[in-house]
């Protein structure tokens, strides 16, 4: 095929050049009503990029799924361990906890999780929860608590959850006395349990 023929093939048909302004555009810039037939390189490159992106997404998905499985195991072990630590008559794996608040550090690569919950079936607002800090690997479905503290559970209704903040926590014990939270704050900022109801600093938007 001659260059002239090739050029003629690349040019859109007369009706495809559009009207008015578009008709004055050079052929490489002019709009076309249908794609010209090429040798398929463009489609090949696009398909190659799509396959690479698909592989990336597949690897990321499987990696993240496996990561979430690990986090789920930790969560399960944390809850079981919390029950075992707080229930002296612990016998089975599925003991009692109420209103659990779990702060899992799933964003940085540590295994520090904090589980706060009530030992009795009460509404959390205005009660004191027991918080335990877990670190390390899962052994036989349990994890080791390195310390803990008590948390004054502020909040009034379903939309005001318990917040694990230093200003609501007191009575640190074990490693929690010296250990700092991931944001650098101490675990306990209150010297003693609160005596009066203090409206929580939540829902302030």
């Amino acid at each position: 095929m001659s260059t002239l023929d090739q050029h003629a093939r690349e040019r859109p048909p007369a009706g495809a050049r559009g009207e008015g302004l578009f008709a004055r555009l050079p052929s490489w810039l002019a709009p076309r009503d249908s794609e010209r037939r090429g040798r398929g390189e463009q489609r090949l490159i696009e398909s190659f990029i799509l396959i690479v992106v698909a592989l990336l997404l597949a690897v990321a998905t499987i990696h993240d799924t496996a990561r979430e499985v690990g986090i789920g195991e930790r969560l399960h072990a944390d809850l079981r361990s919390w029950v075992r630590y707080t229930d002296p008559y612990f016998h089975d794996a599925y003991g009692t906890y109420h209103n659990p608040l779990i702060e899992q550090n799933a964003t940085t690569f540590t295994t520090r999780d904090v589980v706060c919950a009530n030992t009795a079936d009460v509404k959390p607002a205005g009660t004191v929860q027991v918080c335990l800090i877990f670190k390390g690997p899962v052994h036989n479905g349990f994890r080791r608590a390195v310390g803990g503290y008590y948390l004054y559970a502020a909040g009034k209704d379903i939309h005001e959850p318990v917040l694990d903040r230093p200003q609501y926590s007191f009575g640190c014990f074990g490693g929690a006395k010296t250990e700092l939270r991931p944001d650098g704050e101490p675990n306990c900022a209150m010297a003693s349990p609160p005596k009066v109801y203090d409206p929580p600093l939540i829902g302030g938007r």
């Binding site: 696009e46 698909a54 597949a58 998905t61 993240d64 799924t65 979430e68 789920g72």
Partner: peptide, 25 residues
């Protein structure tokens, strides 16, 4: 048809990402 395959593949990845609770008690 690449668009259909790509859309279904992305949806499949999403479904796979949901299944982690199947492997934890």
């Amino acid at each position: 048809r690449r668009l259909l395959y790509a859309t279904l593949a992305v949806q499949l990845f999403f479904v796979i990402h949901q299944i982690s609770p199947l492997f934890t008690p």
